[in-house]
Amino acid sequence: MSNKLLTPLNIGAFDLQHRLVLEWPLVADPLNAPADQLALPSDCLLSGGLIIHDPGALIWPERTSQLISDEDRIKSIWRTTMNNAKLARQSSVARLRGDIALQIPHRPNGILALTQHEIDKIIADYVDAAHRAKSSGFDGIELDSSFGSITDLFLMPSTNLRTDRYGGAIVQRLNFVLELVEALTQAFSRDRLGIRLSPFPRGFEGGRCKVYDDVLSSLRDQEIAYVHLELSEGFDTRVLKSAPPAKALRRAYPGIFVTSGQQSLQFAMDLVEGRWADAVCFFSPQLDAQFLSLLKHA
């Protein structure tokens, strides 16, 4: 059987030569990072693919202590990395982190206490981060809306106790993420924007999965490049193809699914062959020589 992982795929603006997505680790301080921490994989199999970076200090909001000269140096470092990626025909997106501790520090009540002005400021911070990513050479962005992120907190009724236009029924709890997606188009077109979600942090939780049915149904009209779903440990392709919550998610969003979480070659092949996912994301340290050798002979 041919390995569908190694067949071309169009993801929004990205024409990929294979369906293997690489997640590159967080670089908290690129000014002090070893040279190989920013180096991209050189294996020819990974050329023509998509890499998701977590560029850390480049995109964290409220970086008031960072000097302008440091910001320029960080951008210069990433521009060099992105230029190298383009030489390898790799597309690179920057993950915009959704860390609640960074975005609303000193707020024990979390999103409940946010004023409209503060919500507008958070969205503006994301847009500013997206512009910094673009000026640093990234081809697109991935909005981190995974479990525990500020977006996730707005979506879930257990953490969103607001009574204004951002709280209550799911149609209102969706307002934050939809406004955020719309605002990010100031920096990147929709076909260069992905979003990372965690519908299964503890397996098939009925209420959570139903929320994400609605989330994905709303995102299908946004015409973004892809949805990146984190999978819990213990899932296999038979579960994803047969379990009603998983089938409902796939029906809710007919666009491109990138999945991560179960990091094995066979699982990745089964997901793509079974058409539940279109591409599979691996954390970069797992792509060692032995793994790449398996892929070459798959």
Rank of each mutant, 00 (worst) to 15 (best):
residue 17 Q to D: 03
residue 172 Q to F: 15
residue 43 D to C: 03
residue 166 Y to G: 12
residue 58 L to G: 01
residue 110 G to H: 01
residue 74 I to M: 10
residue 238 R to N: 08
residue 28 A to C: 13
residue 205 E to H: 06
residue 67 L to K: 01
residue 127 V to T: 10
residue 74 I to R: 05
residue 64 T to W: 08
residue 105 P to N: 12
residue 88 A to Y: 04
residue 143 L to I: 13
residue 148 G to K: 04
residue 214 D to Q: 14
residue 36 D to E: 04
residue 254 P to E: 02
residue 21 V to D: 05
residue 205 E to I: 09
residue 274 G to R: 02
residue 239 V to D: 14
residue 281 C to L: 14
residue 288 D to Y: 04
residue 78 W to Y: 14
residue 102 L to S: 15
residue 88 A to Q: 14
residue 159 T to M: 05
residue 70 D to P: 05
residue 298 A to H: 12
residue 239 V to K: 06
residue 17 Q to V: 13
residue 5 L to I: 03
residue 118 E to G: 12
residue 27 V to L: 09
residue 213 D to A: 09
residue 289 A to V: 12
residue 170 I to K: 03
residue 162 R to K: 13
residue 214 D to F: 03
residue 286 Q to E: 12
residue 158 S to V: 08
residue 7 T to C: 13
residue 265 L to G: 03
residue 236 D to N: 11
residue 218 S to V: 04
residue 67 L to T: 03
residue 74 I to Q: 09
residue 241 K to P: 07
residue 86 K to W: 03
residue 40 L to Y: 02
residue 27 V to S: 14
residue 52 I to K: 11
residue 24 W to I: 14
residue 266 Q to H: 15
residue 156 M to D: 08
residue 100 I to D: 15
residue 42 S to H: 12
residue 140 G to A: 15
residue 274 G to P: 07
residue 140 G to D: 06
residue 184 L to C: 08
residue 235 F to V: 02
residue 90 Q to K: 13
residue 211 V to S: 08
residue 200 F to T: 06
residue 256 I to C: 12
residue 67 L to Y: 01
residue 79 R to K: 07
residue 120 D to E: 06
residue 276 W to A: 02
residue 181 V to I: 15
residue 203 G to N: 01
residue 220 R to Q: 14
residue 107 R to W: 08
residue 27 V to W: 03
residue 137 G to A: 11
residue 241 K to A: 09
residue 180 L to K: 06
residue 230 E to P: 00
residue 295 L to G: 00
residue 192 R to I: 08
residue 34 P to G: 05
residue 1 M to D: 00
residue 198 S to Q: 15
residue 266 Q to M: 14
residue 251 R to F: 12
residue 160 N to L: 08
residue 223 E to K: 08
residue 233 E to H: 09
residue 95 R to A: 11
residue 187 A to T: 01
residue 33 A to G: 13
residue 90 Q to A: 09
residue 154 F to W: 00
